[in-house]
């Protein structure tokens, strides 16, 4: 680490998470998010990406999971023992996988519900800000959110997180199930928020192509372990990443299966 490394907003050190006292979901994950930076966490299904985010936001309690080892620091402060609310109040916002908007509430009410930890007059200011990022939500602010389109719901989920005035925004697969142009739009808005407000972003994605375009650094997680960490540029060039996550390289013939498994093993 050289002297001009930016200050860290979030740092995970060797975090281990266990569900139901038995199943080990992540095994010693270490991640740093620099202040105002954008970092991606990539990995296949079941690698432990969502679990990592939940360990940061404290939502493991909802699924009988616990952080059994390691340290979680947010703005230099250990947050391992805090409740989800206290973490939100400190400035951690978690946009859940699969959108999860409050379906029977209107977008407007979704935003109001999400400002429970902030003061009343912050609410209207924050709401305006969210609507300026997502004008489409403003148009549809009076219908039940359950009837919004997938893209609109995702916007609402992000807007809802912004209502808590976060310093760190964690997004879990925001591109899930969306058309490519919507993905592009949403990613563009995310990077705009990052630039305009200096908000740090931790982005979890399966869609590595889109993610690596907007982040500065990336981590690769496999079977609960971080197996690679580098700048986005380097990651994009890495042949293994290209092969397994960017869908690049040439088609494989079955003769190369051995080669495939060798690569895979090396990764883990």
């Amino acid at each position: 680490m050289n002297a001009n490394t930016p200050a860290k907003v979030l740092s995970l050190n060797n975090v281990e998470v266990v569900y139901d006292h038995v199943s080990l979901a992540i095994k010693g994950v270490s991640i740093d998010v620099p202040e105002g930076g954008m970092v991606a966490l990539l990995g296949a299904n079941g690698a432990g990406k969502s679990t990592t985010l939940k360990s940061i936001s404290g939502l493991l309690i909802a699924e009988r999971g616990e952080v059994r080892r390691g340290e979680l620091q947010f703005l230099g402060r250990s947050i391992g023992a805090l409740s989800p609310q206290e973490r939100v109040r400190l400035g951690i916002a978690h946009v859940l996988e699969g959108r999860r908007v409050f379906e029977h509430l209107t977008p407007d009410e979704n935003l109001i519900a999400a400002s429970a930890v902030r003061g009343r007059h912050d609410t209207s200011r924050n709401k305006e800000r969210v609507y300026s990022y997502f004008p489409r939500l403003h148009e549809r602010r009076t219908v039940a959110s359950g009837y919004l389109s997938g893209g609109e719901q995702q916007m609402l989920a992000i807007g809802r997180a912004l209502m808590t005035q976060p310093k760190l925004l964690m997004l879990d697969e925001p591109s899930l199930g969306l058309a490519p142009f919507l993905v592009a739009e949403i990613f563009q808005i995310i990077s705009r928020i990052n630039k305009e407000e200096g908000l740090s972003v931790l982005l979890v994605e399966q869609n590595a192509v889109a993610a690596l375009e907007i982040v500065s650094h990336g981590y690769l997680i496999e079977s609960g372990r971080i197996v690679m960490h580098d700048t986005a540029e380097t990651l994009k060039k890495n042949p293994d990443i290209r092969e397994f996550y960017l869908g690049g390289a040439k088609a494989k013939s079955f003769h190369d299966i051995k080669h495939y498994s060798r690569r895979k093993r090396w990764l883990t």
Binding site: S57, G58, L59, I61, A62, P84, Q85, R87, V88, R89, A93, H94, V95, L96, R100, V101, F102, E103, H104, L105, E109, N110, I112, A113, A114, A116, V117, R120, R160, A161, M163, T164
Partner: peptide
């Protein structure tokens, strides 16, 4: 009211309510 909206949000989705800092 605000409190009422929060209660309705809780009934919709516990986990999402937690995620935005609702008690």
């Amino acid at each position: 009211t605000r409190m009422g909206v929060v209660l309705r949000a809780i009934s919709d989705d516990y986990t999402a309510a937690w995620s935005v800092g609702i008690s």
